[in-house]
Design a protein around this nucleic acid. Structure first.
Lengths: 213, 213, 213, 213
DNA sequence: AATGAATGAGCCTTCATTCAT
DNA sequence: AATGAATGAAGGCTCATTCAT
C-alpha cells in the first residue's frame, strides 16, 4: 500500500514547522540572529537538529521566511487598502500608521525582530527593504499633501524617514517594556506628533476620530 | 633620559592600542560585531593576535571601550554645556539636537556603530543606556517647555522617544548614503520637524538662526 | 488468478529492485561509493528512501550485491568454459582474456566500478577477491605453458599479475574515454603484448585469428 | 621584545607538520581519503583538531600536498635524468622503470596512496595527472624505439598503458603483501615482461646488467 | 510493501582565548 | 611587551538508518 499523507499527518507536520518557527522567533528575539544556534532552536522546538533541514534550507532561509510570513503579506494588504481608500492625504497617512501600529502590537516578537535585528548581519537586506517600503507609503502621502497645500513645502523623503524613525523608536520601546500597556495609549500622541511635525494643521479632537479601521 | 624613554614607550603603546581600535571600528562597521574576528582585527591593525589581550580584556570589552570613548565624553560634554547655558527650552533642545548631529557627522563610523549594532548582542545594554541618556536630555527640555506653556500638554517621555527616533533614522540614512551631502542640509528640516511635532510654535526663519553653537 | 497476481507483484518487485541497482550503479560510477547517498540513489530510482531497506540490508550490501551479480556469474561461466575447452595453454589464455575484455565492454559501468573503486573502502575485500580470481586463471595457463616448455621459466604469479594489470589499465582507459571505439581495436594489440611479455613465440598473423569465441 | 622564531621553534613546527602528514598518510592508506576524518588524523598526530588548519587549508589540500611532495619532485628528477642520459630507447625505458620501482619501494605508503586511491574522489585529477605523466615517459621511449626499428610497429600509447598497468599492479601487490621481499626480486622479471611485451629482442643476461643507476 | 519524516552521530571548519617563547 | 602556535568548544550541515503510518 502506498504511503498516503493523511490530513492528520499534514497537520502534525504543520505543527512541527510552527514549533520551529516559534522557537526561532523566540531565540532570535532574545539573542539575535547570529547568536542563536540551530541546535538551540531545535532543542527548544522539541525536535532533532536534523529535522530542521526538512523544513528550512538553512538558517538564513528560516529568518527570511519568518520575516516574509508577516511582512510580505502586511505590505500587500496595506497597498491594497490604500488603493481602494477614498480619503485625503492626512486620513491615508493616519490610517497607514495606525494599521502599522496595530499589526505590530499583535505580533510583538516578529515586530521586534524587524526593528531590532542588526543591520549588518547577512540578513539585513530583507529588513532594509521592508523599512524602505513602509517609509515609501508615508512619503507618498506627504507628497500628495504637499501638492494639495496641506503641508508646507519640504523634503518629503526626509520627513517620511523622520516619521518612520519616530514610530519605530516608540513602538520598539513599547514592545520592549515589560508592562504591556494598551497600544491605543500610544497611538494618539504619536500620530499627533507625526502630523504636526509634517506641518498638518490638526484639530486635536479630530485626530482621534479619524483613525478607525 | 628615563622619562624620555617612558614617554616614547607610552606613545608606542598608545599607538598600538589606537591601531587596534581603529581596525575594530572599521570592521565592526563593515561586518558587524559578531562577524568580525579578533584575528582579522589584529591583522588589519598590524599586530599579533595575542597582543590584543594586552590592551583589552576580550572582544566584548573592546566594543564597550569603543563606544565609551566617544559617548561617555559626549554625554559629559553635553551635560556640562547644557548646565551653563542660559536659554529657553526650545533653544536648549535645538542646541542639543544639533550638537548631537554635528558630533555624529564628525564620527561617522562610531555613530553608525551605535545606531546600527544589533540591540540583541551581548553588547546591547551599553548602547541602550546611551540612547536612554540622550533621550533623557530631550525629555528634560520638553518638560521644561511644557511647564512654561510653550508646548501643549503631552507625554513628554513619548515625544522625546519620537524625536530621538526620527533623529536616529534620518542620521542613519544620511550616514549610510554614499553621497556625503553636508549635514547642514538635513539639520534645519529635521529640527523643524521635531519642534513642530512637539508643538512648538516656530517661525520658520528663526529655526535656522537659533542653532549656532 | 492468485498465481497471476503473485507473478505480477514479483515482477513489480523485481522492477523496483532493478531500478535501485541501476541508479546505484550510475551514481557509484559517476561519484564513487562514498560520495553517493542513499537519498540520491533512491530519488534517481524513483522510490522512497525507506524502500531501499526492503531490498538491501544497507549501503555496503548494495555494493556487494552489485559486484556479485556480475562477477560471480562471470567467473562461474569462465571456469566452466575453460574446463570443457580442449586447447593448449596459449589458446586458453587468449580465450580468457578476450572473454574478459568482451564482458567488460558490454558492462561498462559495472566494469568501471570494479576497476575504479577505491580499494580502501570497506568494500574493498570483495573487489580484491575478484581480481585475485581472475589473475588466478591467467596464472594457471601460464604454469601449464611453462610446464610444456612454451614459455621460459619464470615467476608465473608475477607474470599473471603483470598481465592482469596491463589489461585493467588499458580497459580502464578505454572505458573512460569519451569516444567509444570498438573494443576489437584494442584486443589484438593487448593480447600480443601479454603473450609476448609472457614469452610465447607468437606469429603475428595468428594472434588475430586464434581468438574467436 | 619581539617574538623571534628561533631555530628550535621552527624545528618543532616542522615536526608537528610532519606528524600530521604522517598520520594522514597512514589513515588515507588504511581507510581511504573519504573515510579518514580530520579529527582522527589529528588525534593520531597528537595535536588538536584546530591545529590542522594552521598547516593545511583543508583536507583536500593536505592530500594534494602529500602527493605533490613525492611526485612532483620525482617526475622532475626523472625528466631531468632522462634528458641528460645518453642511451638507446631500451636503456632509457629500463632506467625509467627501475627508477620508478626503486622510489616506490622507498615510499611504500605514499606509493600505495597513489596507486590505490579511488579515482572517483574529488581528489582524483591530481593522481590521474601523475599516471599520465609517467605513462608519457614510457610512451616516448617506445616511440623512439619504434622509429629506430627496435620494436615492431604498434600503438605505442596502448603499449605504454599496458606497461604502466603491469607495473602498477605488480608493485601494488608487492607493497600490500605483508612479507617485504626485496624489490630486486621483482625488478628483473617485470622488466623482462615489459620489454618482451613491447617487442624488444632482449638477451636475458643483459637485461639485468643494463639497469644500474 | 511502501512511504518519507525523524533521528542524532558525525563531518569540516572557525574562532576567542591561552601560553611558552 | 609582543608574538603567533595551539587549543577545543561550538557552529552549520549531511546522511545512513529507523519507524509510525
Amino acid at each position: 500500500m502506498v504511503y498516503q499523507q493523511t490530513f492528520k499527518v499534514a497537520q502534525k507536520l504543520a505543527k512541527k514547522e510552527k514549533s520551529i518557527r516559534w522557537a526561532a522567533l523566540k531565540l532570535f528575539d532574545e539573542k539575535g540572529y547570529e547568536c542563536s544556534s540551530i541546535k538551540e532552536i531545535t532543542r527548544l522546538a522539541g525536535v532533532a537538529a536534523g529535522t530542521f533541514y526538512l523544513y528550512f534550507r538553512n538558517k538564513e532561509q528560516l529568518f527570511t521566511s519568518l520575516i516574509d510570513e508577516f511582512y510580505q503579506q502586511m505590505i500587500e494588504d496595506m497597498r491594497c487598502r490604500r488603493k481602494t481608500m477614498e480619503a485625503d492625504a492626512q486620513k491615508k497617512l493616519s490610517f497607514s500608521m495606525q494599521y502599522f501600529l496595530k499589526l505590530f502590537s499583535e505580533h510583538r516578537k516578529l515586530a521586534r525582530l524587524v526593528l531590532l535585528q542588526s543591520r549588518q548581519d547577512k540578513v539585513h537586506r530583507l529588513v532594509a527593504a521592508i523599512h524602505d517600503e513602509l517609509t515609501g507609503f508615508i512619503r507618498e502621502d506627504l507628497e500628495e499633501a504637499m501638492d494639495q497645500g496641506l503641508i508646507p513645502a519640504q523634503d518629503c523623503r526626509l520627513t517620511a524617514q523622520a516619521i518612520a524613525g519616530s514610530y519605530n523608536q516608540v513602538i520598539l520601546n513599547w514592545l520592549s517594556s515589560e508592562v504591556t500597556s494598551p497600544v491605543e495609549e500610544v497611538t494618539g500622541s504619536l500620530l499627533s506628533f507625526a502630523l504636526r511635525g509634517a506641518g498638518f494643521k490638526i484639530l486635536e479632537e479630530k485626530s482621534e476620530e479619524g483613525c478607525r479601521f
